[in-house]
Design a protein around this nucleic acid. Structure first.
Length: 469
RNA sequence: GGCGCUGUACCCAAGUGGUCUAAGGGGAAGGUCUGCAAAACCUUUAUUCGUCGGUUCGAAUCCGACCGGCGCCUCCA
């Protein structure tokens, strides 16, 4: 299996440190607002990677952290006259709800920064001891000149960075590129005790602390958006490797941005849609298919038109899935036993996914399969139910469990004897009589009117079926 | 200025030396089935891969130049 490692900029053979265990850390959100659909891309692609590793038999310890103390949270809390904790708790909850709606598997753990202050302090203390961190009036900074490898992930070197530095120089820093490990408490802001007085952690230190605590000094995969390469991940490396004298991460993975009209979708530009907003109009499966159709590392343009196209694609799979479920229910044993090479489909799927999670090709394999099965169904009158069971198994294993672009259980219509369903059935039987009497105008009117109510009718060979939209 | 990504059909997008007369999705056109519709199936929709040169028996794929889009270097998935 190959993974494109940002660190080496090449595809490397994936060899986890401790197979079959895999440790994976994904940089989560700062919880000061709902996350947008561009953020969702990273979480969904990380989810697909995690699910594929599990498909391959790995046991993945998957951490998705939550940054619950940060400038933006504090600002928001002041604006809303709430405590920082109230703000972060509210949006942390929303974050998990929205991820669940996007069918992202819950992480093994969602560690929060504020619950790991001690761990952060001990790393900072270690850096102070080594003479890498310095204290200026209760503010602690990381001295980047003390870490010779600084810049090795982002391909930058200190001179270039300094030359291009646009940062407003903080007088306290020895070097403009030094970054804060610990910020001295300000009046009216949350703070914690530390050996250097009251204060709060800098942004980068939490990932070093939580990653180490739960996954060890060296982890297999660390992932996040492209914009985290520098400075965030660069700084994490500097902190962790200087402190523990060990390689921090084996495989760095970074996700491309979601653009809107060729511009990065971002909070600051204001050109974003929240994930929950989009979920009101499009299914999670369509959103996931939209992302899976593209290579995770490149840019991707967002538009509702493209999501609609993805929704159509999902419908295509759903239509087949419904037919499959119906085919299984019929329990036919003396029908045709079509010849389809399931093994080969599995092989194609793993082959492409093994190549740096080529989900675009994986999606193509699924659609090729769907087309093939549809073709078989259209060519045979009676097909053994076992064929449908096998078909379903393939789709569940790949499209559902790995990509998450179909969900068989959600197809189950409530066949419960609700009054509504009974009325629909009644209308259908009346309509059937009308059809037999060739009173098509009236039959069509019933179909159209039901459609307006969100009930879609399909006349098949074996009677009329309906679906609530 | 440095580092990185990117330019493939009407739209999205895979493919990075021969199996590419270029996957897959959406759209469009025609056909089969159907009373009609929907679904599904079949056929068609790039001899061509930003432009111009070069390397090679052979290039969308390698090299060079040029043109265009985007990002990071400051909080950001």
């Amino acid at each position: 299996m190959l993974i494109n490692n940002t660190f080496s900029k090449t595809k490397e053979e994936f060899r986890p440190i401790n197979p079959p265990n895999v440790t994976m850390y994904v940089c989560g959100p700062t919880v000061y607002d709902y996350f947008h659909i561009g953020n969702a891309r990273s979480f969904i692609m990380a989810d697909i990677i995690r699910r594929y590793l599990e498909f391959k038999g790995y046991s993945v310890n998957f951490l998705l952290n939550i940054t619950d103390i940060e400038d933006k949270i504090i600002r928001r809390s002041k604006e809303e006259n709430k405590t920082a904790q109230e703000v972060s708790e509210f949006y942390a909850k929303a974050f998990n709800n929205d991820l669940a709606s996007l069918k992202v598997k819950p992480a093994t753990r969602n560690p929060k920064a504020t619950e790991h202050i001690n761990e952060m302090i001990s790393i900072i203390a270690g850096l102070v001891e080594k003479g890498i961190a310095y204290n200026v009036d209760g503010n602690l900074f990381y001295d980047v000149t003390k870490f010779p490898d600084y810049g090795k992930l982002s391909g930058k070197n200190l001179e270039e960075l300094e030359a291009g530095a646009r940062i407003e120089v903080n007088e306290q820093k020895k070097n403009p590129l030094d970054f804060a490990l610990w910020k001295k408490a300000k009046e009216g802001e949350p703070s914690w005790d530390s050996p250097w007085g009251k204060g709060r952690p800098g942004w980068h230190i939490e990932c070093s602390a939580m990653s180490t605590k739960y996954l060890g000094n060296t982890i297999d995969i660390h992932a996040g958006g492209n914009d985290l390469i520098f400075p965030h991940h660069e700084n994490e490396i500097a902190q962790s490797e200087a402190c523990f004298n060990q390689k921090f991460v084996k495989y760095w993975m970074h996700f491309g941005f979601l653009n809107i009209q060729n511009e990065k979708m971002s909070k600051s530009l204001g050109n974003f849609f929240t994930a929950r907003e989009i979920l009101k109009k499009y299914s999670a499966e369509a959103i996931r298919l939209f992302f899976a159709q593209t290579y995770y590392g490149g840019p991707l343009n967002f538009s509702e038109e493209l999501l609609s196209a993805a929704e159509k694609g999902v419908e295509k799979i759903v239509n087949l899935a419904e037919m499959i479920d119906a085919g299984i229910k019929k329990n036919i044993e003396d029908g045709a036993q079509p010849d389809i090479d399931f093994k080969n489909y599995y092989m194609q799927f793993t082959e492409v996914m093994d190549d740096d999670f080529n989900t675009s090709k994986a999606v193509a394999v699924i659609f090729d399969f769907v087309k093939n099965v549809n073709k078989i169904v259209s060519e045979n009158e009676r097909i053994n139910s076992s064929f449908f069971s096998e078909t379903k198994k393939f789709l569940v294993d790949t499209a559902e469990n790995v990509l998450g672009i179909i969900h068989f259980d959600s197809l189950q219509k409530e066949v419960s004897a609700s009054l509504e369903n009974e009325v629909i059935e009644l209308l259908l039987s009346v309509r059937n009589i009308l059809k037999k009497e060739k009173n098509f105008p009236l039959a069509d009117q019933i179909r159209n009117d039901l459609n307006k109510l969100g009930i879609e009718l399909k006349d098949g060979k074996e009677g009329t079926t309906y679906k609530k939209k």
